[in-house]
Nucleic acid binder design. Structure first.
Length: 523
DNA sequence: GGACGGTGAAACTTCAGGTTGCCTC
DNA sequence: GAAGTTTCACCGTCC
C-alpha cells in the first residue's frame, strides 16, 4: 500500500507525525538515543506551534499536564522544563531519564488520547502496552561496540508491534525511516523479511551462573558435582548449545571461586588423600554466610567484594567516600558514570584527597582497570553530593545524570547497602553496621546526617526537613514543642497537622494566610 | 598595537535499559 | 556513524 504524506517541514519524521495528528490519530516515534527522543519531541512541538492552533480545551488540558510534569521534583531540571514545553503542545518524550511519576503521567494521558505523540527510546516497546496508530522508527541502528549497529530483529518486532490499537483501529502502521536507498534495502532484508534471532539462555553469563549455582547448593538441590552437571545439562543453555564441556569447565571454575570466597565448603578439604574418582563425589555445602548471599540473590563476586572491603575498613581511616566507593565499584552498579576528559584532573584530585580511605586497592595508572576505578570514584562523588543535599538540577549539570537514572542508581545503592549491613552483621562488625545503616538512610533521603531525626516523619523529605531545621526545629522533640501555626507556615497546614499527629498531638490550625503581621521565616 | 568579538572549520564527545530485599527509626 | 558541543585559528573592528 502506498500513501503519500504531505511534506511540510522537510523532515520525514515530523511530516509523518503531523499527518497522523491531522488524521486525529496517535503516533509513537522510536529514537535511538535519549537526546534524539527529546530533540524530536521538541521539534514536533515547535512544528505544531507553527502549523496549527490548539483549541481552548486542549490548551487548558495541556497546560495542566505540563505543570504536573514540571513540578514532580523539588527543583525542576532542564529535562523537566523541556518536557513541560513539549507537553504544552500535546507531545512528550519518554525514556529512562524521566522519573517514574513523569512516565506515568505521559503513559496515562497517551492512553486517554490526550497526548498525540510520544518520542521514546526502546523502553516503551518492552513491557509497556501502549498501542498507537503509527509506530515510527526513526533509526534502526544504535551505537554498539563497533560504531552504529543494527538493532536485533526482535527489538524491531517489539517496536513495530506497538502499531495498531485493536479496539479502535482496523489497521496500524509500522514505519521505518530510511535515510538512503541502500539503507532502505537493508531494512527490508533485515527486518521485514528477516527472522527474529534465537533467544539464548542467560545462564551462559557468568554472574548469573555463579549466583544460580550458589543458590542451588545453599538450597540443597544439588550436593555433588555429578548432580550439578546433571542439573545444568537439563537447562536451556545445554539444550541450545549441546556442548557440556564448556559449561562443565565454567562450573568447575565457579565452584573453585565460591570455595575461595568461603561461601561453600566441600568434603575434599577434610581428606587430603583421594583418588580422582572420589573428587567427583565430594559434597558441597553452603556456609552460613554463603547461605545469606544466596538468599539475598546477590552475585557472589559482589558479595565477596563487599565483605573484603568491610574487613579492610578496620585498618583504614573511614571517610564519607569509603563505603560509597565500595558500592560504586560493584558489577551491579554498572554502567558507571564516566569520567570525561575535562573532569579527569578533578577526579584524580578527589582521589588523592580520599586515597587513604579507599577500601579497595587502587589499580596502577597504567592498568586497564584504572579508568573504571576513576569512574567508580566519580560515581561515589555523585552519591556524596546527593547525601549532602545537592539538588537534582545541579547533579544533572555536574554529572550529566538525569533524575530517572539517579533514582535507579540510588535504588541499587540502597539494595547493596542493605546487603552490606547483612554482611557486616554476620562478620560481627557492629561499628561498621551503624555507619552503613546511617549512610543507607541518608542515601534514601538525600540528606545530611543532622536531618535524619526529622526524616522519620511521614510527609517530610529532604526539602521540608531542611526548612524545619533552618527554623530551629531539629528533632522530634522540637516538633512536639513547636507552635502549630509556625509549623504550618513552614511546611503548610496539612503537613503540619499530619506531623503533629505523628508525634501524638492533635491540633487544629487556622489558615495561616489570614493572619497578618507574621514575621518572615527562614527557608 | 592590542583587546575584543564574530565566524566557521576542525576536533572532540557522546550514544538503550533497570530486577533481586526488608520493615530498622 | 551522526549529531551536538567545544576549541581554535582567523579576520575585522574599535579604542
Amino acid at each position: 500500500m502506498h500513501e503519500t504524506i504531505a511534506s511540510e517541514t522537510g523532515d520525514q519524521t515530523i511530516d509523518l507525525v503531523l499527518d497522523t495528528i491531522n488524521k486525529l490519530k496517535q503516533a509513537i516515534v522510536f529514537a535511538n538515543t535519549k537526546r534524539s527522543a527529546e530533540k524530536t519531541a521538541e521539534d514536533i512541538a515547535k512544528a505544531i506551534g507553527k502549523q496549527r492552533s490548539l483549541s481552548e480545551k486542549e490548551t487548558k488540558e495541556y497546560e495542566e499536564l505540563s505543570e504536573k510534569a514540571l513540578n514532580t521534583l523539588s527543583t525542576p531540571t532542564k529535562q523537566c522544563k523541556r518536557l513541560a514545553f513539549c507537553l504544552k503542545k500535546g507531545i512528550a518524550f519518554h525514556h529512562a531519564g524521566l522519573v517514574h511519576k513523569q512516565k506515568e503521567i505521559i503513559e496515562d494521558s497517551f492512553r486517554k488520547g490526550l497526548i498525540k505523540t510520544i518520542c521514546a527510546t526502546p523502553t516503551l516497546s518492552f513491557g509497556l502496552d501502549l498501542p498507537a496508530y503509527r509506530a515510527i522508527m526513526k533509526d534502526l541502528r544504535r551505537f554498539g561496540h563497533r560504531g552504529l549497529d543494527w538493532i536485533p530483529t526482535l527489538e524491531y518486532l517489539q517496536m513495530a508491534g506497538r502499531a495498531g490499537r485493536p479496539k479502535y483501529d482496523i489497521t496500524g502502521q509500522a514505519i521505518a525511516i530510511a535515510s538512503t536507498e541502500p539503507i532502505k534495502d537493508e531494512i527490508y532484508e533485515r527486518y521485514v523479511k528477516g527472522e527474529p534471532e534465537e533467544v539464548y539462555s542467560k545462564l551462559a553469563v557468568e554472574p548469573v551462573l555463579r549466583t544460580y549455582l550458589l543458590s542451588l547448593i545453599a538450597a540443597g538441590f544439588v550436593k555433588d558435582k555429578k548432580q550439578i552437571i546433571d542439573f545444568f545439562s537439563k537447562t536451556f543453555w545445554a539444550f541450545q548449545y549441546k556442548d557440556m564441556t564448556k559449561l562443565t569447565s565454567i562450573i568447575e571454575k565457579m565452584l573453585k571461586l565460591l570455595k575461595d570466597y568461603r561461601f561453600i565448603t566441600s568434603t575434599e578439604e577434610e581428606n587430603e588423600f583421594q583418588s580422582a574418582a572420589d573428587m567427583f563425589n565430594h559434597e558441597y555445602k553452603a556456609t552460613p554466610i554463603g547461605k545469606r548471599v544466596a538468599e539475598l540473590y546477590i552475585d557472589p563476586y559482589t558479595a565477596n567484594h563487599i565483605i573484603q572491603a568491610l574487613k579492610a575498613s578496620e585498618k583504614k581511616e573511614i571517610s564519607e567516600l569509603s563505603f560509597l566507593q565500595m558500592i560504586a565499584s560493584t558489577l551491579e552498579m554498572r554502567p558507571l558514570l564516566r569520567v570525561r576528559k575535562k573532569e579527569y584532573e578533578d577526579i584524580e584530585e578527589a582521589l588523592v584527597k580520599y586515597s587513604d580511605s579507599m577500601l579497595q586497592e587502587e589499580p596502577s595508572m597504567y592498568d586497564e582497570e584504572y579508568v573504571e576505578f576513576l569512574n567508580s570514584v566519580k560515581t561515589a562523588l555523585f552519591f556524596k553530593d546527593w547525601i549532602n543535599e545537592i539538588d537534582e538540577e545541579a547533579i544533572l549539570e555536574k554529572y550529566s545524570i538525569r533524575p530517572g537514572e539517579t533514582r535507579i542508581k540510588l535504588n541499587l545503592a540502597d539494595w547493596l547497602f542493605y546487603c552490606s549491613t547483612e554482611f557486616a552483621r554476620m562478620i560481627k562488625k557492629k561499628d561498621i553496621l551503624k555507619e552503613l545503616t546511617k549512610l543507607r538512610l541518608r542515601l534514601k533521603h538525600g540528606a545530611k546526617e543532622e536531618l535524619l531525626p526529622l526524616l522519620k516523619l511521614k510527609g517530610i523529605g529532604r526539602v521540608r526537613a531542611r526548612k524545619l531545621f533552618s527554623n530551629r526545629i531539629k528533632t522530634i522533640r522540637d516538633v512536639k514543642r513547636s507552635d502549630p501555626l509556625k509549623l504550618s507556615q513552614i511546611v503548610g497546614k496539612k503537613t503540619a497537622i499530619k506531623i503533629k499527629e505523628q508525634v501524638g498531638q492533635k491540633v487544629e490550625i487556622a489558615s495561616p494566610l489570614k493572619r497578618k503581621g507574621q514575621k518572615g521565616l527562614k527557608v
